Computed example of a mutant assay.
Amino acid sequence: MLVEIWSDIGCPWCFIGKRRFETALSRFEHASEVEVRWRSYQLDPSVPEHFDGTEVDYLSRVKGMDPAQVAGMLEHVTSQAAGEGLNYRFEDLVVANSFTAHRLIHLARESGGEETAAAVKEALLSAHFEKGLDIASHDVLAEIGSQSGLDPETVRSTLAGTDYAEAVEQDVAEARALGVNGVPFFVLDRRYGISGAQPAELFEQALAQAWEAGHQPLQPAAATAGASPDGASCSAEGCS
Rank of each mutant, 00 (worst) to 15 (best):
G64A: 14
M65C: 05
D66M: 08
A68S: 10
Q69G: 02
Q69I: 08
V70Q: 07
H76P: 01
S79P: 05
Q80L: 15
A82K: 12
G83R: 15
G83M: 13
Y88D: 00
D92S: 08
D92N: 06
L93V: 13
L93R: 15
V95H: 01
A96C: 00
N97P: 12
F99H: 02
A101I: 00
H102K: 00
H106M: 01
S111K: 04
E114L: 02
A117K: 03
A117C: 10
V120H: 06
K121D: 12
E122C: 03
A123T: 03
A123Q: 10
A123D: 07
L125K: 03
S126H: 14
S126P: 11
A127G: 12
A127M: 08
A127T: 04
L133K: 14
A136W: 01
A136V: 00
S137D: 15
S137G: 03
H138V: 15
D139N: 12
D139A: 14
V140A: 15
L141A: 12
L141Q: 06
E143D: 13
I144V: 11
S146T: 10
D151A: 02
E153D: 13
E153I: 11
T154R: 04
V155N: 06
S157H: 07
G161M: 10
T162Q: 09
D163V: 11
Y164A: 01
E169F: 08
E169K: 10
Q170V: 12
V172K: 02
V172S: 01
A173P: 09
E174Q: 14
E174K: 12
R176V: 13
R176G: 14
R176I: 11
L178E: 00
G179N: 11
V180W: 01
N181I: 12
F185D: 00
F185M: 00
V187C: 10
V187W: 03
V187H: 05
L188S: 08
R191S: 07
R191P: 08
Y192R: 05
Y192I: 04
